[in-house]
Design a protein around this nucleic acid. Structure first.
Lengths: 341, 341
DNA sequence: CTCCTCGATGAAAACCTTTGAGTCGCTGGT
DNA sequence: ACCAGCGACTCAAAGGTTTTCATCGAGGAG
């Protein structure tokens, strides 16, 4: 009976061993309610004994479902991937998708070439849906993806019209308000801001929160804000510029931890003590950064794991039920106090 | 998710439009030599006109090939993923696999649970092969993967017997020799070493290179070496310990850039000037780190992009021809001089 | 002119699963 | 006794591609 034939067992084999038809075996595997307890048990036993694993291709062929989803990062500046934020998102995606037993197909798109490839791939029906990370202004990829008849969930707000889109965003503006209010509550009077690149909506939202908390108009904000480009080096430079523009500053809200790390270095070199002379609040709460700066960084936490988990959850809902309507989900942010403010 | 408007064209449609049979159309797509020039052109035209894309599932069903390969990172300490090295490898993998038009299925395994899942997945025939990154000693995953009838290429030497394995390694030992010789050539007399965790062979190889260049035995090496765990924080601590153990040190070879960044901070705090008092050489040549330390870091370059590219190439060879024999490939390393040594 | 060879092509089987339609044996109502 | 209804199952038809084998026609050798 036990044939150690190295060919993988098929559903037919399972059915034969369980003494039922292929159809019944299939129904057991798909948890159909219309099977008797005996059949169910017999089939399960056979599956176990044979170590049966459904053939994904055959299943995909008939269900027209691939059991895979694409995770797409659109980012013209490949070096930004050095940001630990990126690693965190990938990690979260891998985990969340594995949990629901779907394959994660990772796509990194930088060049127009990559865009074309992504277009071909996504249009080719190789995946059931996609998670898209495309933070930049006027990203061609978003227009491409929008036209596809493919369920997509975005991370954050992509640039452009949001009509009919599904997305899970962090409350960037709220978090920025939190940070700024905290600095105010410490009695700081000259609060400045290192922003992210203003072609990303998350950076704009954070800037807006900063402005709102201080009741600043555009002009006022411009006087106390510098763009740090979401890089460590950018954070250094922006901080230098701010020290020059506003020598009397006593607090700074930095729109990312990576930039904050750079800003701290600049402040240190300039002889300003943190938090005594200058209070600093970051954004992201990247433990691997925030816990290792000197002093440890107070930061606004956005839970990327949670964000990705929600994205996956929502995409699965979309895949099950085509009629889910457009939905924008907003995740709360919270201030984590450490030593820098 | 298919839209009723435009059902995707099948090979049948292409054949009809080109006025040939499905078989011939298929032959064209698979670049079979046995088709007439006219047929070839007609089919290509039809493919283009219809925007035809082969159905992957159907193809997989008959060829018993999935067109996907797994990229597996086995790493008990999830936080290590914050290392930019990880991001770089993923990026390189995504690119290299996309170039040969195969899907990359990313698997991150931390826990025994993850191992079980990976086992099921890899044994389930869901991929044609795997690229495995498993640097740690006695990694259970390696034993699991070894038993699978699945073509696998390893990154670096996994722990244990290498019989019959395919791998692409960097010349860690040679690079370490390079670094140490360079420090010697600068006239440094008291050279110490911050190693990686000694449950990784790459760390051991680098340590061995260091020992070889200085003709040290185990005892001698122990006196001038500290384990920095491949983390920034570990680098700081190891450097402190070394300063205590060998106050007169005038050079240090650090087994990774991330650790070197930490070591530089410690040296700075201790008032040692780099490179005047202490010369520092890192390993990895991570531009995003090495270019942004103060002073800029001299480092041993290992080209991860190249490594991954070779891994993919070799795996593809394995997939085409089952009879390729076991092969260990070694990639050269080279010293990149900047300011720190 | 016939017989062969050979290259290009087509018909059809095979890959493995899901699923709608049909079958079978019971129960319970009339 | 009969029939409707029902639950549990089986049959067999897709689903789109590759590949083997047979066929067909043309051209060369005899």
């Amino acid at each position: 009976m036990l044939v150690s034939n190295h060919a993988r067992p098929t559903l037919e084999d399972v059915a034969a061993r369980a003494g039922v038809s292929r159809a019944t075996a299939s129904r057991v595997l798909n948890a159909s309610p219309r099977v008797s307890p005996e059949a169910l048990e017999a089939v399960n036993a056979a599956v176990h004994a044979l170590g049966y694993q459904p053939n994904r291709a055959a299943r995909a062929l008939v269900t027209r479902r691939t059991g895979a989803v694409a995770v797409v990062f659109s980012e013209p500046e490949p070096k930004i991937f050095d940001d630990p934020h990126f690693a965190r998102l990938i990690r979260a995606g891998a985990r969340a998708l594995a949990d629901v037993d779907v394959q994660m197909v990772l796509m990194l798109v930088h060049s127009p070439d990559d865009q074309a490839r992504a277009h071909r791939f996504l249009a080719g029906g190789h995946v059931d849906g996609a998670l898209v990370f495309a933070p930049h202004r006027n990203d061609e990829l978003v227009s491409i993806v929008k036209k596809l008849p493919l369920p997509v969930v975005y991370a954050g707000k992509p640039w452009g019209s949001l009509r009919g889109m599904h997305l899970v965003d962090n409350d960037n503006e709220g978090g920025a308000v939190l940070a700024t209010e905290h600095l105010k509550s410490l009695g700081r009077k000259k609060i400045v801001h290192v922003s992210g690149p203003l072609d990303e909506l998350s950076a704009i939202d954070r800037l807006n929160g900063f402005k709102a908390a201080l009741s600043l108009d555009d002009k006022g904000a411009a006087r106390v804000t510098e763009d740090g480009g979401f890089t460590r080096e950018g954070g250094r430079k922006a901080m230098s510029a701010l020290l020059a523009k506003v020598p009397s500053l006593d607090a700074v809200f930095v729109a990312s931890d990576l930039m904050a790390a750079g800003a701290l270095e600049t402040l240190h070199e300039a002889g300003r003590r943190v938090p005594e002379d200058v209070a600093v609040v970051g954004f992201d709460d990247h433990v691997s950064i925030a816990e290792h700066t000197a002093p440890k960084l107070t930061s606004v936490r956005q839970d990327s794991d949670e964000q990705v988990k929600h994205m996956v959850e929502h995409l699965m809902k979309l895949l099950r039920d085509e009629t889910v309507k457009s939905k924008k989900q907003m995740l709360p942010t919270v201030l984590v106090r450490r030593e820098s403010a």
